[in-house]
Design a protein around this nucleic acid. Sequence first.
DNA 1: AACAACCATATAGTATGGTTCATACTTTAC
DNA 2: GTAAAGTATGAACCATACTATATGGTTGTT
Lengths: 120, 120
Amino acid sequence: MLINELSKRTGVSIATLRYYENYGMFKGVSDEKVRTNNYKHYDELVVEKIEIIKGAKEVGFTLAEIKDLLENWHSEQLSMEKKIAVVNSKINEVDAKIHQLTEVKKLLARCIEDIENGMC
Amino acid sequence: MLINELSKRTGVSIATLRYYENYGMFKGVSDEKVRTNNYKHYDELVVEKIEIIKGAKEVGFTLAEIKDLLENWHSEQLSMEKKIAVVNSKINEVDAKIHQLTEVKKLLARCIEDIENGMC
DNA sequence: AACAACCATATAGTATGGTTCATACTTTAC
DNA sequence: GTAAAGTATGAACCATACTATATGGTTGTT
């Protein structure tokens, strides 16, 4: 698919997609057979990566962190074990964030108590 | 306590604390009795607020969102019911983020599977 | 062929969340 | 009383993550 469709599929603006591609988050490929243009094509894997980017961003990961993850995930250089280690370490970070969120929730629950007790 | 102690208590740099105060996240008070300076004093409530800021930031809330929460929490203008409603809506957002994180976790788990199956 | 709609690249501008710096006054320790 | 450390204010600066704008080529429709 071309960038327009990719944008519609993912809900991410074309400008942002280009920014991401330029940043190195993923890569579209130009059709070798067509020499008249250099339109880039994106496949389902790119869609998946963008879903990861969206989700991870929403919960506070930076593009640099996400890029690092995605890069390792599809690297030819790395052994299967190393790739798995990278992804697993990200899963641990996600767990840490879930823990952090439950802490915030506790603080907010205490806020409610304080309000109910007229303490603020 | 003064800003130096506040910084040490919270682990947030003095510059950032001033930035937060300036942004309206909380307010220190100058001692009325001391007219020679306008050093600002911060109490335990400020420490608590900063803990909320830290936690909420870490999981992707913006300062504007957090400010909104903190402002309502200690507003004299709002009824107890409204305050509780504001905090509860934030708790719902936290739950939504937890859900989002579990989705990301699923995607990452699928990454692992893909890697194990040699699909990338 | 002409016109809209689409694609690519480059550059500049914007918003957020800070950090650094310059200046100046205050307190504390010696 | 003087040097060192702490505090306040304001402005400049910086990184991240976009967003907009300008320019020019391509495709598709009529």
